[in-house]
């Protein structure tokens, strides 16, 4: 059971991890991220890299949709912009990978700002629909701007290289992507300790009050779009390096829905929610594959069953969480913690 915690200064009270226990947990988490590669195999490392990329992307979307209340169904297309930026630079310039990644983030941010312009005019569902339109327009560009994207043939990307080490394998890639993910998540968490993050939440909760407190709605909405696109750009760039090749089919509308589903399942408007949702939604298809493998002696064509089952479970998760756990996994996690804090006195 935990009782109170006394703080000496307001700085201490404003800290990201306010108690010793929280610090210990964070340190343990980092330690396990460091140890993970030594106790797992390539398959799990591959998944860990994919999860990390998805965590970055989902966190970005969470800033925009979960915290600022601006629903976007174009997030995957923005990742595509980042991925194509990396791919083009990789094929046409001899720049190091970290510059390519930053350029991807920069270009995506610019595109995101333009795609965010409708948010100044329309809200809610109309904005969501406008982002679907933006997503299709970007898709068109990916297919038809052949001189840059090579159209439907797709484009290959050489693996990144740091200090002579080629990151062409999940077990090397892991050491690049996980630190980036940790930093990106911490940056996002910091944002919501300051006036900028609070302004985002204010716009989501009650935009009229926000404006009488001096928060400029257009400026902050665009800022939120810019940050979300920045995250999408980094995630997309990493995705391009990780996959080694991309084509216009790599970033369909369904992938945007995937990220929206991830933050719904994880919990909108909490940093933890973006993380949990991305992990959960990335691993679920794998779990289903195990399930179908186990059931394969009993069904006719296991190969043909897996994809539809994934689609059904994907939809059922969205519906189920919205109906029964609208605050997502993060809220379930909070309930569990609360149980142990009060244990054994109240349950």
């Amino acid at each position: 059971m935990r009782i109170g915690s006394a703080k000496e200064s307001y700085i201490a009270d404003e800290a990201l991890f306010a108690t010793r226990t929280q610090w210990v947990w964070f340190a343990l988490l980092l330690a396990s991220l460091v140890l993970f590669p030594f106790v797992s195999n390539l398959y799990w490392l591959y998944l860990a890299c994919l999860v990390s990329i998805n965590v970055i992307s989902a966190t970005g979307l969470n800033i925009l949709t979960g915290f600022t209340g601006q629903v976007s169904l174009g997030h995957a297309a923005f990742m595509g912009v980042g991925a194509y930026t990396v791919a083009w630079l990789d094929n046409n310039a001899q720049t190091p990978f970290y510059l390519n990644l930053l350029a991807a983030a920069g270009v995506t941010t610019a595109v995101g700002l333009v795609a965010g312009l409708p948010s100044l005019r329309v809200k809610g569902l109309y904005l969501a629909i406008a982002t679907i339109a933006a997503s299709f327009i970007l898709q068109f560009v990916f297919i038809n701007w052949e001189s840059v994207t090579r159209g439907t043939r797709g484009i290959n990307i050489e693996p990144p290289e740091i200090m002579g080490i080629v990151l062409d394998n999940p077990d090397t890639f892991y050491w690049m992507v996980v630190p980036i993910m940790v930093v990106m998540v911490l940056l996002a968490a910091n944002l919501f300790r300051t006036r900028v993050g609070r302004a985002f939440i204010a716009i989501r909760d009650r935009d009229i009050s926000a404006s009488v407190l001096g928060i400029s709605l257009p400026a902050y909405k665009l800022m939120s779009f810019a940050i979300a696109s920045f995250y999408a750009g980094i995630a997309g760039g990493l995705y391009a390096y990780f996959m080694g090749s991309i084509n216009p089919e790599s970033f369909p509308l369904l992938m945007s829905i995937f990220f929206l589903a991830a933050i719904i399942v994880g919990g909108m408007g909490t940093i933890l929610g973006g993380i949990l949702g991305a992990i959960f939604m990335t691993l679920t298809p794998e779990v289903l594959r195990y399930g179908v493998d186990l059931a394969s002696p009993f069904i006719d064509e296991p190969g043909a069953v897996l994809s539809p089952v994934r689609t059904i479970v994907f939809g059922a998760l969205i519906v189920g969480f919205l109906l029964f756990e609208p605050h997502g996994l993060a809220e379930i996690w909070r309930r569990i913690r609360r149980f142990f804090h009060l244990w054994p006195f109240r349950t």
């Binding site: 829905i257 689609t311 939809g315 109906l323």
Partner: peptide, 19 residues
């Protein structure tokens, strides 16, 4: 918005079932 998302989920369930 939540209701809208629910219909997206329903769509996914229907497509999966048909497939």
């Amino acid at each position: 918005i939540s209701v809208f998302m629910v219909t997206i989920g329903l769509g996914s369930i229907l497509v999966g079932t048909v497939e």
